[in-house]
């Protein structure tokens, strides 16, 4: 025990002879300053924030996330609500959701006609983990619905790539070319 005391005493005296209290305070200050700077390092926190609040600060949409959706895109909210812009089938849509306008996600509201030409996209269905070809037809013949405006346009290109730009009234080839809302019709599987 005495030996242990001697060891500690000698090491403490040695330390006291070599260093000052002022240097101790300096080192402590460096440690505190350094630890304060750690949060300023460039670390991606967007995914964690989106998982907690949704991509635009809205609360994460309710709904049970299927197993196939987990891990595939954990940062995206999952919803089965077809009146929500986040519904998987709307990944390339640009317009008012017909499900909020008296129709459904794939049928036009009464008094409108489905466009004969359409925008085509592919969307990933998290429920079964597969990709689907989706036709986005406008419903035509009545004034704009105005409900549930949804702009996602996945893989759209700027206007100078005209064949890949969706800033188009797809009612243009119909007799009544007034735009009312947009439906999303699954055409088939996009892969094997």
């Amino acid at each position: 025990m005495q030996r242990l005391d001697r060891i500690f005493e000698s090491s403490a005296r040695s330390l006291a002879q070599r260093t000052s209290r002022r240097s101790f305070i300096g080192v402590l200050g460096q440690i505190l300053t350094g630890s304060l700077l750690i949060p300023l390092l460039p670390i991606d926190r967007i995914q964690r924030a989106e998982a907690a609040t949704g991509p635009e600060g809205s609360p994460a949409a309710p709904g049970k996330v299927p197993a196939a959706a987990k891990g595939k895109s954990a940062s995206k909210p999952y919803t089965e609500d077809q009146q929500s812009c986040e519904y998987w089938k709307y990944c390339a849509i640009d317009g008012f959701l017909c499900s909020c306008c008296g129709g459904s996600s794939h049928t036009c509201p009464p008094g409108t006609q489905m466009s004969v030409v359409s925008w085509i996209g592919t969307c990933h269905n998290p429920a079964d983990g597969r990709d689907y070809i989706v036709s986005y037809n406008d419903c035509c013949g009545k004034a704009s619905c105005g409900n549930c405006d949804c702009y996602r346009n996945e893989r759209e290109r700027p206007l100078y790539r005209l064949s890949r730009n969706n800033d188009v009234n797809w009612c243009m080839a119909n007799t009544g070319s007034d735009y009312h809302c947009t439906v999303s019709v699954i055409l088939g599987s996009a892969g094997p």
Partner: peptide
């Protein structure tokens, strides 16, 4: 212009798509 615009109005592409998929994605919209 309507016909020309519509001819390839499409978005998205499946990896290693065959001609049937290319028709669906690049031609079928119009």
């Amino acid at each position: 212009p309507i016909a020309l615009l519509g001819a390839t109005a499409a978005v998205g592409a499946a990896a290693q798509a065959g001609p049937a998929e290319d028709y669906a994605l690049h031609c079928m919209g119009c």
